[in-house]
Design a protein around this nucleic acid. Structure first.
Lengths: 342, 342
DNA sequence: GCTTGGCACTCAAGCACCAGGAGTGCCAGC
DNA sequence: GCTGGCACTCCTGGTGCTTGAGTGCCAAGC
């Protein structure tokens, strides 16, 4: 009973603080939420909450502000996920349905997420590792140059240029094209790499050198981390609303936005496929970003999460709303990828 | 004589203001630069400069700040382009020389520019319009899907997916591949489009439908504005140093950074190939960006500018340094593209 | 005809001071 | 266990003052 009210007070504090960005006092609390008790009672609860580390007083005679621990409790037990409105759902569906290719899906998702949440949105491109090789194409561009094109089941295309010391014959190239496709097509990246690695040995001495360099470039392209690490970012303009704590919070975040490795680490490490992960303030891996929170979710086919998307914002953010938006977008993107895959 | 000193005063004001970010007074001016005259004399000159609109007084009893017109005069007649140090030149050369492909060149250029100038850097991807078609590849992915791959002389690769109602035969596809390449390879985009447009009519009735849809998609890909409009952006973290005038200056700029069309208009419209263009404050096309300046240059093969790169920063910026960096990077990129082309 | 030192003037910035008010903690009573 | 009352804290905003940087102007000097 008492415990329940304490939690209600915490929830009210979080909601008010997120809305007003100002420390919230006992009087405002009972007025704005129908708590049905007097300010003095709320003060007692507040004292207890502060004792337990959920809220914090910037200075004596100021209102209370949630701590990271307070937000954590709020997210875990108090908030739930605010359902999206029908209009929002429609907007998501129509916007994403009209995407023309994988890149477009990612771009649109970023824009969507940042618009829905008014935060900075981050969408990781689907990783290669789980996808399969659909086709490999070798194109002779000049006598001494071959363009290698690697097409994956996710729709991603990687291209590489290969210099050859001697010009291969038309027939030689066609033969090699057939063989690499036989070895790799339909296989997962890892398996394809292995199969390709064994390929040159099976060839006649004359063809071996060319095959080896082609295979080298292909395996390099497959294992290339850059592809795994690609992310799209959007909504940086929303950082302008940070207002206070500018040097301390915005600058590191702006820097992080250009370090895609950092971003991946931020939104990465999602546990399960469907649920939304929230990382609050100091819980994240970077101490410079202690005043920012991340709301992220994996997306991809039901059984396997291909990649992650999410938003980054101040710890003082609308968690229920962000979680709802992130979850909704992740689901729609999953569905679209699934359909495109069939 | 007197006129010369007035210009020297203006130059000193610009340099000091850029360095200190504070209105500069007559006393500080004579002390920091060896002007050899008394503060009172400088004051007279300042009054004249203000009369002519080159400098401005935020309020009585404050120092002077250059106006846009003052910066313009400074850039046109007073500054010259500060030569890059040997170390900087080496850094540019080694960083760009180790780029592996076109995208990499662009990415590295952005990073380089933003690091050199401590501003936001913008690099436009080479436009399609001037480039030529190197090769077109048709790849059967599933019975009902063909992947069209368009390879351009700049190294850019465009891919499109095409759904076909009936599966084309191997032979049919090979024939079409040969024909589209005969028609388009080596041609400029515009010419290639025209040549391709006439292709379907020359074919037998049976092949015409497939050819038509392939041609449609190809011409669409060629004329697709998205390719022309791609830009890379970097160094947004440098905006954090803006400090004052935050809501007025940084927010619009952050928004612009995500609107690539806006960015293109910002750095675009470069006149000649080699020279550096500077657009100061209100001279630019967007009133929200009246407190930012753009330093840009075209790059590409000597005779034809393929695209533009540059930096965006506060009107109060180090013009000589930025101009030097932009020019140097533009030249190196041109050279690299030229070599890659040969 | 410039240049210069002197001088009066202006005005932002910093500081002390004060009053107001929001908010708290605690306590005694219900 | 809740509540009203009360003393206390301390941020916030306003006022008035001083200070100092900087100016404009003028008369004298080179």
């Amino acid at each position: 009973m008492v415990e329940d009210r304490k939690l209600a007070v915490l929830r009210a504090i979080v909601e008010d603080y997120v809305a007003t960005e100002e420390p919230v006092g006992s009087r405002a609390l009972v007025e704005r939420h129908g708590l049905g008790v007097s300010p003095a009672t709320v003060r007692n609860d507040m004292a207890a909450l502060e004792e337990e580390g959920f809220i914090h007083q910037p200075h004596t005679s100021a209102g209370r502000v949630p701590t990271d621990k307070g937000y954590r409790l709020f997210v875990d037990r108090l908030s739930g996920v605010k359902p999206m409105s029908a209009a929002e759902k429609r907007a998501i569906a129509t916007l994403l349905d009209s995407a023309v290719d994988l890149d477009d899906v990612v771009q649109r998702s970023v824009r969507l997420l940042s618009n829905l949440t008014h935060q900075v949105a981050i969408v990781q491109y689907p990783t290669l590792s789980r996808s399969t090789v659909r086709h490999i194409e070798l194109v002779q561009i000049t006598p001494s140059r071959i363009m290698l094109i690697l097409i994956l089941s996710t729709g991603r295309v990687e291209q590489r240029l290969l210099e050859t010391p001697v010009a291969p014959s038309e027939h030689q190239l066609a033969d090699l094209r057939t063989r690499v496709n036989q070895a790799a097509a339909g296989e997962r990246i890892a398996d394809a790499s292995a199969a390709l690695g064994a390929l040159p040995e099976t060839l006649a001495q004359d063809d071996r050198a060319l095959a080896q360099s082609v295979v080298d470039v292909l395996t390099e392209a497959m294992s290339d981390h850059r592809s795994d690490e690609r992310v799209a970012v959007g909504g940086a303009a929303n950082l302008a609303r940070f207002g206070d704590s500018f040097q301390t919070a915005v600058r590191p975040l702006l820097e992080a936005l250009e370090e895609h490795v950092v971003l991946l680490k931020l939104i990465g490490e999602v546990t399960s496929g469907d649920s939304v992960t929230v990382r609050i303030g100091h819980e994240g891996p970077y101490s410079e970003l202690a005043s920012t929170s991340v709301v992220a979710a994996g997306y991809g086919p039901p059984d396997q999460a291909l990649a992650t998307l999410g938003v980054v914002g101040p710890t003082r953010m609308d968690y229920p709303g962000s979680m709802a938006a992130v979850r909704a977008v992740a689901r729609y993107v999953s569905r679209i990828l699934d359909e495109g895959q069939q």
